[in-house]
Design a protein around this nucleic acid. Structure first.
Length: 879
DNA sequence: CGAACCTTTGAGTTA
DNA sequence: CAAAGGTTCG
């Protein structure tokens, strides 16, 4: 890992190498030149350096510019050095963009901003520095969803919970939700914890966390949650970061969840004096777990850990001492808490509620950070008048918002268009034609985007564009590192890097096929669990015995030998080369070469790309640490092409021409969101619509289809209520170019929009009523459930979710002995009894026999029926 | 053990 | 309709 804190010099403290260079250059190049061109509000947001600042930046008001300029300003004023600024974003894309712009502004690449990154990457980095304090090693693995689910499945099995009724994915979702809310296993409200697996939810969460420690692994949520625990349990460590970060900047603040909020809260306090209970600085946030006074009770055990970690830190020196000598620097100690935190966000663009984001965080900012300065950016520099008016009018239907009025000095431009088509196919055809028309008119295809609500909508466009020969690219989609071949390849490397990585081992043990199927893996598991050793070691032991059939035994032994060889080669071979060797010798590459399916070639390309991307890292270890956090899909965006993506992934982007298909009840707003989150869900969908519209600079075109295929069957749909909510003056209703169309204007009339003041009256819109009528046909049962969830609104847990859990009427506790069984299992794994010669034993497969030879945990047994066999001790019991 | 075939279920957005 | 899971047969 790089050493962010390393001060580059001794002598002249200020204007020198890397770190000083940026500041100096900014000063020289700038002479507040970088402030030119900012409007007064933007300028205020940049120049208000002291104290908490909330910048409410509507769409297209220059948010990123403010953030980057602010950093440049801090540096040029010598208020902090690059490594003393914590700047967090949500996506790698946003982080990259900021680095890029900062580089342009300061005239060089920003090497010295080690703490500019996503919440997860920064959290992960801090965690690696102090891993041992949270029972991890610094080379811990970040699990992907697959690994997570696989692990949970095992736990469910161990608890004898039917994974049909209680799917592992569901549990993964629950745990994720808890982590997003900053809840450790002990802090989950017991009611919630009990809802899964006949009351075992909480227990499962706890044992999941335990397993993660054993596997030396963390999931995405842990990158923050464990960070918070680290800070709470180790005030010294927290203090160290509090004094390091002189300035904190947060992008997209409206998307922060409780965990991220807590994390920011902890870091944004001025370094507390030792002995001050941390609970004093953590306000009672909704859902915030009560923090017991951890700080006072630091025991000597922990204390010594702290000493250890400190001495480690010293080798990568902390800024502390050098810093106070830095002229012109405000001594951090004299600042009153909370310190210089600047959050930028837009409550109207909060679209990640389902992921745990709390719009509340932004709405409560002034309360959380007393004395905060709130600056509104309301001048929109992006969209034309009509588009902006439509977007503003639409979002005005939301109640829970801080309220901003976006203005533009741009011309009115073209009206927003609404087009109805017969079905989704025709919709795609119509959009295709319009895009070709734009192209003929000289528009650049890079300035054309299609934004859909759900990814399954994309397919129709892809089909259409392929037949038209229209170049397009899909943005977002499955990320590079999520693809099976990449994860397989990474799993090989993970096993090489850390033999104890059971999840990785399990993933590739039979990929490509080696004749090591479920039976073998199960055997390894049994042994590993009984002996409390990693699978790989278990394999090593089992191979020495006759437990497996010769065929399986042979190929397992080969596999182990291969790994041993690769590990040895690691010392003398470049990591990229090693990767190639591994992929080749394991037969993995060959497996895809033989594969004749359409995407095999692409997968091979991806593997090449993976190896190429390894070059950027110094060694295998460094590569593996970062890969899961950093890798994006290939950026290759050279050629002119239409962009196709979901509304969610469009946030932060802009295009001259934006096509918004699928504005139908049930799809957009999504019925499921409405069912699950009621009114709050509807408002979030509306914000999504607002995001969609405000992506457009010059043309925004909306579409709805009357018929759409859902679950493979065609069903009739109703225009979205959001269409009713648009201001008629800025909207033009057009005929579908596809011809056979829908009359459109007949059922759908924008003239009705003005009776939709509040949510309640939205029920009165024609769209809603029609949707209701529509829903009754076909699926009567569902509609009832939908309604009730909808009306109950906010209370997400008592409402729809409990339905999901209790659905099917299975509240009965099955079989009492389960618990006992669990204890028994736990006990039997505890102590491993040694055998003596001549002990009479029983083996599941071979029957009765007696011990004739002992070699560590390998026994040779003369079986009465099966003859003499070598077995592992954990598979026999004394009788 | 694995390939081929059959059944069932399900399609929402993501670091 | 498609993918994922389950079952059967070689």
């Amino acid at each position: 890992m790089t050493e962010p804190n390393k001060l580059p010099h001794r002598g002249v403290p200020e204007h020198q190498p890397a770190a000083g260079g940026i500041a100096a250059r900014a000063r020289a190049a700038a002479g507040p030149q970088y402030l030119n061109g900012l409007n007064p509000e933007q300028r205020e947001a940049v120049e208000t350096l002291d104290g908490p600042v909330l910048v409410l930046a509507g769409a297209g008001t220059g948010k990123t510019r403010v953030l980057t300029t602010r950093i440049a300003h801090i540096l040029s004023q010598s208020r902090a050095r690059p490594h003393e600024i914590l700047s967090v974003t949500f996506t790698n894309k946003a982080a990259r963009e900021m680095k890029l712009r900062l580089g342009q502004m300061l005239g060089q690449a920003v090497e010295g901003m080690p703490w500019l990154g996503t919440f997860h990457s920064i959290g992960g980095r801090i965690l690696r520095f102090h891993a041992e304090l949270v029972q991890l090693k610094s080379n811990f693995t970040v699990l992907d969803v697959d690994d997570q689910v696989r692990l949970l499945k095992q736990l469910l099995q161990a608890e004898s919970i039917d994974d049909k009724r209680w799917p592992a994915r569901m549990l993964a979702g629950l745990i994720d939700g808890w982590k997003n809310r900053g809840l450790a296993p002990s802090q989950v409200p017991s009611g919630e914890a009990a809802m899964f697996g006949n009351g075992k939810g909480g227990k499962l969460y706890a044992s999941y966390q335990e397993r993660l420690k054993i596997l030396n692994a963390a999931d995405f949520g842990d990158l923050l949650l464990e960070n918070i625990r680290l800070f709470r349990e180790n005030p010294d460590v927290l203090r160290q970061y509090q004094s390091r970060f002189k300035f904190i900047l947060v992008d997209e603040y409206q998307d922060t969840n409780v965990a991220q909020y807590l994390w920011l809260r902890l870091l944004s306090q001025a370094p507390s004096r030792p002995g001050v209970p941390l609970s004093a600085i953590i306000p009672g946030h909704t859902d915030t777990p009560v923090i017991p006074g951890h700080a006072e009770g630091v025991n000597s055990d922990v204390q010594s850990h702290i000493e250890e970690s400190r001495s480690k830190e010293d080798s990568a020196p902390d800024s502390g001492s050098a810093l106070s000598a830095h002229p012109g620097m405000t001594p951090s100690q004299s600042q009153t808490p909370p310190k210089n935190i600047c959050c930028v966000g837009d409550d109207d663009q909060s679209i990640y509620g389902w992921r745990g984001a709390e719009v509340d965080n932004i709405l409560r900012f002034e309360h959380d950070f007393p004395g905060a300065k709130v600056i509104r950016l309301e001048r929109n520099y992006r969209s034309t008048g009509h588009i902006l008016a439509a977007a503003s009018h639409l979002i005005a239907h939301n109640e829970g918002r801080l309220g901003k009025t976006l203005r533009t000095e741009d011309v009115d431009g073209e009206k927003v268009t609404v087009t109805g088509s017969w079905d989704s196919e025709e919709e795609a055809r119509a959009i295709g034609e319009e895009i070709e028309e734009l192209q003929r008119a000289g528009e650049n295809l890079n300035e054309v985007a299609i934004l859909v609500r759900a990814s399954f909508q994309m397919r129709e466009f892809e089909d259409r564009f392929v037949t038209l020969g229209l170049p397009y690219r899909v943005i977002g989609g499955p990320r590079f590192y999520e693809r099976a071949e990449i994860r397989d390849a990474l799993a090989y490397l993970r096993v090489i890097n850390s033999p104890a990585d059971d999840l990785a081992f399990e993933r590739i043990v039979n990929v490509p096929k080696r004749g090591l199927g479920d039976a073998t893996v199960q055997l390894l598991h049994d042994h590993a669990r009984k002996r409390r050793i990693p699978l790989f070691e278990a394999a090593r032991a089992v191979v020495e015995t006759d437990e497996l059939k010769p065929k399986a035994r042979g190929s397992l032994r080969d596999l182990i030998l291969q790994f041993d060889r690769w590990r040895a080669q690691r010392e003398v071979t470049a990591h990229t080369e090693l990767a190639e060797i591994v992929l080749d010798e394991s037969g993995y590459t060959e497996m895809w070469q033989k594969d004749r399916s359409a995407d095999a070639a692409g997968r091979l390309d991806n593997l090449k790309e993976l190896v190429r991307s390894m070059e950027e890292f110094e060694n295998l270890q460094g590569f593996l640490e970062h890969i899961s956090l950093v890798m994006d899909r290939d950026g290759g965006a050279e050629d002119e092409a239409v962009s196709l993506m979901t509304l969610h992934s469009a946030k932060g982007l802009e295009f001259d021409n934006v096509f918004l298909p699928g504005w139908e009840e049930g799809l957009f707003p999504s019925q499921r969101t409405l069912d699950e989150q009621g009114r709050a869900g509807l408002e979030e969908e509306r914000r999504l619509a607002h995001v969609g519209l405000t992506r457009a600079r010059r043309r925004a075109k909306l579409y709805f289809a009357t018929n759409r295929r859902i679950h493979g069957t065609w069903s009739t749909t109703i225009p979205s209520r959001f269409l009713d909510e648009l201001p008629p003056a800025n909207v033009e209703i057009t005929e579908s170019k596809g011809g056979s169309g829908w009359g459109g204007a007949g059922g759908y009339g924008p003239s009705r929009f003005d009776n939709v003041e509040s949510f309640g009256s939205s029920y009165a819109t024609p769209g809603w009523q029609r949707a209701q009528a529509n829903r009754n046909r076909g699926q009567a049962g569902r509609s009832g459930q939908a309604r009730s969830g909808f009306e109950e609104g906010q209370s997400s847990f008592s409402g729809s979710r409990s339905d999901a859990f209790s659905g099917g009427g299975f509240s009965r506790n099955k079989r009492g002995p389960l618990v006992i069984e669990g204890e028994l299992v736990a006990k039997s794994t505890g102590t491993v009894s040694e055998f003596s010669l001549d002990d009479r034993v029983f083996h599941q497969k071979f029957g009765y026999g007696h011990v004739v030879k002992i070699d560590g945990n390998k026994l040779t047994i003369a079986f009465e029926k099966a003859g003499e066999k070598k077995v592992v001790d954990s598979f026999v019991e004394r009788v």
